[in-house]
Amino acid sequence: MAVIIFVLVLWYGGLFFQSFFLHRYAAHQVFTMSKTMERITFILTWIFQGSSYLSAYGYGIMHRMHHAYTDTEKDPHSPSFDDNMFAMMWKTKTIYQDINKERIEVDQRFTKNVPQWKSFDNFASSRFSRVLWMAFYVLFFAYFVTSAWQWVLLPITFLMAPIHGVIINWFGHIYGYVNFQMKNTSKNLFRFDFLMMGEGYHNNHHKHANRANFGVKWYEIDLTYVIIKVLNAFGIIQLKRIPVRIED
Rank of each mutant, 00 (worst) to 15 (best):
L139D: 11
L22I: 04
N232A: 13
E220A: 07
W133G: 02
F120T: 00
D83F: 12
Y219K: 01
W218A: 12
E220R: 01
F48V: 06
T157H: 04
L139P: 00
I61L: 13
T70C: 14
K101D: 15
S126D: 12
Q49Y: 11
G13A: 13
N179P: 04
V230F: 15
H23Y: 12
S125P: 00
H63R: 03
I174E: 08
W133I: 02
I168Q: 01
L8H: 00
S80D: 14
W46H: 05
A26N: 08
A27V: 07
R39D: 06
I104E: 07
T92V: 08
I47E: 11
K112I: 12
E102G: 05
I40N: 09
S34C: 09
I174K: 10
K93G: 00
V145C: 13
I4W: 12
F42D: 02
G172W: 02
H206W: 04
I5R: 01
G50A: 11
Q29K: 14
I43L: 15
F171R: 00
W46Y: 12
F20Y: 15
R241I: 03
N169S: 10
M85P: 00
Q238W: 06
G14P: 03
A68C: 13
Q49M: 14
F194D: 00
F136G: 14
I167K: 00
D222V: 03
K229P: 01
E199G: 13
I221W: 13
V30F: 14
I47V: 15
R191E: 00
K74E: 11
Y53N: 04
V106C: 08
F31P: 05
Y177E: 13
M160I: 13
I99P: 05
I228R: 02
K35T: 07
E102K: 14
N100T: 03
N188Y: 02
V152S: 11
V230T: 09
E102R: 14
W149A: 05
F21L: 09
K183C: 06
K217G: 04
F21N: 04
F16D: 06
P155Q: 09
S147G: 01
R130S: 15
E38Q: 13
Q150T: 03
V7T: 04
Y96G: 02
D75E: 06
F110N: 05
V7W: 05
M1S: 11
Q181P: 00
I40D: 10
T146V: 10
F158I: 08
G215L: 07
F17D: 02
K207E: 14
F16P: 02
